[in-house]
Nucleic acid binder design. Sequence first.
DNA 1: CATTCATTTCAAAAAAAAATGAAATAAGCA
DNA 2: TGCTTATTTCATTTTTTTTTGAAATGAATG
Lengths: 175, 175
Amino acid sequence: MNESMTVPANLQTESSAVINARNLELESIDFFVRLMSMLGMPRSVGEIYGLLYFSKDSLPMDQIASRLEISIGSASQGLRTLRSLKAVRTAYVAGDRRDHYFAETEFRRLFSNFIKDEIMPHLDSAKDRISRMEKSLPEQSHEEDEFYAVRIEKLRRLTKAGGRLLPALAGLLKL
Amino acid sequence: MNESMTVPANLQTESSAVINARNLELESIDFFVRLMSMLGMPRSVGEIYGLLYFSKDSLPMDQIASRLEISIGSASQGLRTLRSLKAVRTAYVAGDRRDHYFAETEFRRLFSNFIKDEIMPHLDSAKDRISRMEKSLPEQSHEEDEFYAVRIEKLRRLTKAGGRLLPALAGLLKL
DNA sequence: CATTCATTTCAAAAAAAAATGAAATAAGCA
DNA sequence: TGCTTATTTCATTTTTTTTTGAAATGAATG
């Protein structure tokens, strides 16, 4: 009637543990796919990190690709991205020439890298753009050009505040 | 030889003021297109806000569309987004039945709305997902399941920290 | 140093996101 | 109310982003 009755107890236990780990993995992938996509990262990057986050063992690229059912091209690019953010690292495994990846799980550091690499460069170029705006203002400011000067100043304050706050943000992360 | 020599002085001045305003406008559009796209907003939304940010007069939708050379469909959708973030508001203009839009320029409020509308909902559903993860853990935790429990706890701390920090962030914005 | 296996690269395909514009709807006016 | 103008909606098209997979490159092994 019930197949599980014919399964030895130890095997049954192990199989349900496997199912549980697989559930976790799926929830984790889901979680990080969404989080990463909020940060503008492609799906595959979230999938890879999500898989590694709940993996006890470090995994080689080909296993990552096959477990996620993505191409090795995606896996390679996704791992490159994650490596550059220091979100994954590689472990040496004796007798295996593949690189084995595992997740860096200190979120404080992860966010600090993300902010430095993905946000600060934009802020820097924003400053240039604001300087250019100022050059478009007539030197001898007419009464009415006050309007433009004020708006430019607001932008300057915004970028300045961003430049201070964002790097400090990771520090505030008390996890 | 030089055409500008034949242009009356007053007109020449006005025209260079127009050119300057146009430069500002273009830099502004560029600025906000990039900023908005960092926040995951489509190009058109940045263009519209950038145009309005340096516009002394409030503008009706059709003028926004034609000055940006985008379709009225894009303009309508973009304005809807901006309205929902309270990034633009409408002004009444006597004798004109079109809505006239102008930019809300208090960035503190804008970010606070953005965080509330675009980020907090994701954080809420992340909490559910973490609860589901915990259900995948065996009740009677084996020694080795410590690993999973710790990782889940990390996620919980991350979302908790995010839930506190992000709303506080706008408050820190001293502009 | 030749072979095998691992990884990267990148042109092409697929998928996702955004823009268009015409039809439908709404909203003011006479 | 009927007419006109403004706005929204949404199926289709366009553009952009991401993925794929095969070829090129690189790296370890015997």
